[in-house]
């Protein structure tokens, strides 16, 4: 009985499934296909023999990775920078979005939004140049002001503790505006009558924010938090690579830059693949863990 129902359903809606095939094929070719190369992590990769012809070496590559001090330093820094980002950079777009939502003058709101979005579209290479012009010890604008006033220059970029702050602030500056989009969309979805009712009941601005706005976008916050937690182990390449420098490598060397320097630059493809696979596995654990926790705590989950 049920089988018959399914066939008629399929006959009627097959176009929908056919359309879905396109993205499925995309994922198969570009996301699953390359997984064939994962085996490089278990092989001593030889350019001329190709992937299939290279020799299996078991877990030797992983042993080498886990014996490498720099790997653990990079792992620690990845988690450290991401955790700090989660504390500093994650709430920033939320606060910004609520502030924007409270604005009533439309043209100013639009103007402010545009200004806030712009940094997102600037290449990190250019941001790197700006950072140097602003924070440099010798040529930086801030330090020129400080030394002009007879104060000592602050090594924003060459002292590792100051560098952490610079790194975080630059991140907020670059991404906070863009991050507001999702929150603003969610905020617009809240029923206006709730605000009006609250006003009638005599609720002030902060009461409204805490009891209507924030609960109203709880799902969005949870979703973004889960995504962020899932990405704890992976870190973009551009930002630490460009904002970082030799003097602060104690903090600025992360897994992505480690893979680039040790794996790609010195042609140790196997090692780079092994680190990538390790990252993917840990990332999966983080993602599932965060999803589980969110399900238990807030009854919100995305999987």
């Amino acid at each position: 009985m049920k089988a018959v129902k399914n066939t008629t359903y399929l006959r009627r809606n097959w176009q929908l499934y056919a359309l879905l095939m396109l993205p499925v094929i995309y994922f198969l070719i570009f996301k699953y296909g390359p997984m064939y190369g994962v085996q490089i992590a278990f092989k001593e990769f030889n350019f001329f023999e190709g992937i299939a012809g290279s020799e299996w070496v078991g877990l030797d590559i992983f042993r080498e990775v886990f014996q490498n001090n720099d790997f653990f330093k990079a792992l620690r820094n990845t988690l450290l920078l991401n955790l700090l980002d989660l504390i500093i950079s994650f709430p920033a777009p939320l606060i910004l979005a609520i502030m924007l939502y409270e604005l009533r003058i439309i043209w100013f709101k639009k103007f402010a939004q545009t200004i806030l979005y712009v940094p997102h579209f600037i290449s990190w290479v250019i941001i790197g140049g700006i950072v140097l012009q602003v924070f440099g010890t010798e040529s930086g604008f801030i330090n020129n002001l400080l030394t002009g006033m007879g104060l000592d220059a602050i090594p924003f970029l060459s002292n590792k503790h100051y560098w952490l702050i610079t790194y975080l602030l630059v991140g907020v500056w670059q991404s906070a505006g863009w991050g507001t989009i999702l929150y603003l969309a969610a905020l617009t979805g809240i029923n206006k009558e709730l605000f009006e009712a609250a006003e009638v009941d005599g609720a002030g601005r902060f009461k409204k924010i805490f009891h209507i706005s924030l609960p109203g976008i709880k799902t969005t916050i949870a979703t973004l938090l889960i995504i962020n937690l899932g990405n704890m182990i992976s870190i973009g390449f551009d930002r630490p690579f460009i904002v970082g420098n030799v003097a602060v490598r104690d903090y600025s060397e992360v897994l992505s830059t480690f893979v680039y320097r040790v794996g790609i630059e010195s042609g140790q493809i196997s090692l780079a693949t092994a680190v990538g696979l390790f990252q993917a596995l840990v990332g999966l654990i983080f993602l599932l863990g965060a999803n589980y926790a969110s399900k238990k705590l807030a009854d919100e989950s995305i999987l």
Binding site: G136, T137, E138, S139, L157, N245, V246, A247
Partner: peptide, 8 residues
């Protein structure tokens, strides 16, 4: 030079 470490 103070910032020589940044000047690759």
């Amino acid at each position: 030079s103070k910032d020589f470490g940044l000047d690759k």
